[in-house]
């Protein structure tokens, strides 16, 4: 697929990141909805079997049954983006079934002149929704967490989109995981001080630019509390 690169087996990567001291793992099929396919639940199960830390999975989640399959596969939380933007009431239904702690709103944000628009399919498709209105609406349905991805910053390693983060942090009443742009430990510190409750990183870890272990040690030097492993 255009713009996507194979970097390895999800199972091997899960093992690697768990051993390096990841606090949580996010496994996403970012183009599942685009191809109208479901998550590979067997693969979710294989990934979950490598872990004894929390696992969030996402991609193509569009029914209560999909969430059941993900949880039975060993996931603890599901991240929902595309289907929620099309059927917002699904978030409410999902929260009622599984509890707020299980339902993560995934937001893919792309900047325009006056703010940010919510995108889907790994930043390929417009949703037509404004990020602030959408976040407020989703919060009213009781979601338990926000996974906030800056499409503009993904893979750039230049640090997180701090204006985007502070915009959402000012209205969010649930934890925010910021994603897209992770660079060095300093960029992570900036995000944590800028309103993120946790940070997600992919590129810098997938390409072995650094390790979770080293990042945590550097963060500890900045006096940021990190889980020792």
């Amino acid at each position: 697929m255009e713009g996507l690169r194979k970097i390895g087996s999800p199972v091997d990567l899960a093992k690697k990141y768990f051993n390096h001291g990841a606090d949580e793992l996010i496994y996403m099929d970012i183009v599942a909805s685009l191809y109208n396919r479901s998550l590979d639940y067997d693969l979710v199960n294989s990934v979950a079997n490598e872990l004894c830390i929390p696992l969030t999975v996402g991609g193509g989640i569009r029914s209560i049954d999909d969430i059941n399959k993900a949880l039975h596969g060993g996931a603890d939380k599901v991240a929902i983006n595309t289907y929620a933007t099309q059927h917002p009431e699904f978030l409410k239904e999902a929260v009622r079934h599984f509890g707020a702690q299980c339902i993560v709103l995934s937001i893919e944000a792309k900047q325009h002149n006056t703010g940010w628009e919510v995108f889907t399919e790994g930043g390929r498709e417009h949703s037509g929704r404004d990020i602030i209105e959408w976040t407020k609406e989703a919060l009213s349905y009781g979601i338990g967490e926000i996974l906030l991805t800056s499409v503009d910053y993904e893979g750039t390693k230049k640090g997180y989109d701090l204006p985007l983060l502070s915009t959402i942090a000012s209205i969010a009443t649930v934890p925010i995981v910021i994603n897209g742009g992770a660079g060095n430990a300093k960029s992570i510190r900036n995000a944590l001080e800028g309103g993120a409750d946790a940070i997600a990183a992919a590129t810098i870890l997938h390409y072995d630019i650094t390790t979770i272990y080293d990042l945590k040690n550097e963060l500890a030097e900045y006096h940021i509390p990190v889980r020792k492993t």
Partner: peptide, 8 residues
Amino acid sequence: TKIPHMGW
């Protein structure tokens, strides 16, 4: 402080 208490 955010609720749920979620994390380590």
